[in-house]
Simulated assay, not measured.
Amino acid sequence: MGKCSDTGMFACTATIAADRKTKQLCKRLQPRQIALVDHADVDEMAAHSLLEANVQAVINLSPFMTGTYPAEGASRLLEAGIPMYEVVGGHSSLVEELDGKRAAVSGDALLVHTDGQWRPVASVRAVTADEIAARRKEADDRLDDVLAAFIDNTLQFAEREKELFLHPLRKLPLVTRMANRHVVVVVRGRHYREDLRMLSSYIRECQPVLIAVDGGADALMECGYTPDLIVGDMDSISDRALCCGAEVVVHAFPDGSAPGRERVEALGLPYHLLPAPGTSEDVAMLLAYEEQAQLIVTIGSHSNMIDFLEKGRKGMASTLLVRTKIGPKLIDAKGVSQLYQPRWSWNWWALMIAATLVPVAAALAINPVARHAVQMWWMQWRSWAF
């Protein structure tokens, strides 16, 4: 391939951080790096994670939006002004080849710096707002067909799996007690930060058991809380959160295999192994239910078609079955922050200022030293003013 030495026309130049799983990549992304992913239909949470990492640009081996369903990630990145490029013609090996390399985008070429030269390694094309809008319209037009297939798949798997959910989970010797208590199950889903802030008074006053599902532990710690229990396959949680002192339940497949067990053991943490069907958030809710929780509140949970399509699932059988079983005790607080946003008014400000001045005035009235100081200040001010 050819060489390029003129850097004046480069659209962006930085070190590439590459991974096939965006959530894994975001754990190690450094500010102003170029993110190289292989992520069709980038979801909103992935986009938020990339923005939080302060990426310079995102290069995708797959379409940012295929038009299958209205994924929101591409729109979020465009709104933030992040340049987006799609690699033309596959090149699946680029993830391994370019991770940690210095790269640049020039026109329709992706170049890498080796042996003192810029060498093109793939063709790319910039993704535009008009293109994403066209794909969004395509997704909206076919949404009814996608929904029909999603419902059919959900009901088919629900019929096959219902017996698994009728039986109780394996009994675990948990230290965390949930009987007759409120339990909050936190998933790192859409609007989780805002919802946690809205429920801060409830959490402070009721002191519920806090169950984190994988990365939900990081979400809780970001908001100043420490989880009591962590449930999941441990693929999206940080080591810091995993070692926070919470009791750990590793979610295993029904056959007992558990990819997350190796990581927990490598950190030297005690854990419980819980084989169960369904998603980890389903298991967390079932666990709280079977431990006789009085009320189960979910934050950031996945509960609709778009949520599950973004997770790569074609149906939501386990979630349907679990929510049907525990329904009377379940409150889904996802999106509660979007329901009402309190507004500050001049009346509120006046009340706050008055509430601040009352104890100050009281202290001045009963303290002779403070009273004398105020009198001296008043006399001095009058001498300046007149």
Rank of each mutant, 00 (worst) to 15 (best):
R193C: 06
E194H: 09
A57D: 09
R240E: 15
P173D: 00
L110K: 03
E44W: 09
A354W: 10
D145A: 15
L286F: 07
L61V: 05
H113I: 02
T68R: 13
S280W: 00
L196G: 08
H272P: 03
G268Y: 00
K329W: 08
P70R: 11
P277A: 03
Y271I: 05
N153A: 14
L229I: 10
P328Q: 03
L169K: 03
P359S: 11
Q380S: 10
D282H: 14
V112I: 14
H191T: 09
L199Q: 09
K314P: 02
L196W: 04
D99G: 09
D235Q: 10
S383P: 00
L155N: 08
V112A: 12
D144N: 08
Y340H: 15
G335H: 07
R193G: 08
T176Y: 05
G216Q: 03
H182W: 02
R240W: 06
I82V: 15
A293S: 10
T7R: 13
D145G: 06
T324C: 04
R197I: 13
S303A: 13
R160C: 09
P208K: 01
R20A: 14
V297L: 10
S123R: 11
N54C: 10
F150L: 04
F64R: 03
R119G: 02
V283S: 04
S257F: 05
L78Q: 10
V127T: 12
R204N: 11
P208L: 03
A266T: 03
E281H: 14
F253R: 05
T7Y: 07
A158M: 07
E161K: 09
F253L: 08
E281Q: 13
I366L: 09
S75P: 00
M84A: 05
L166A: 14
K3Y: 11
G2N: 12
V231Y: 02
P277S: 04
T298S: 13
T66I: 07
V105Y: 05
L98W: 11
L143D: 04
D214S: 09
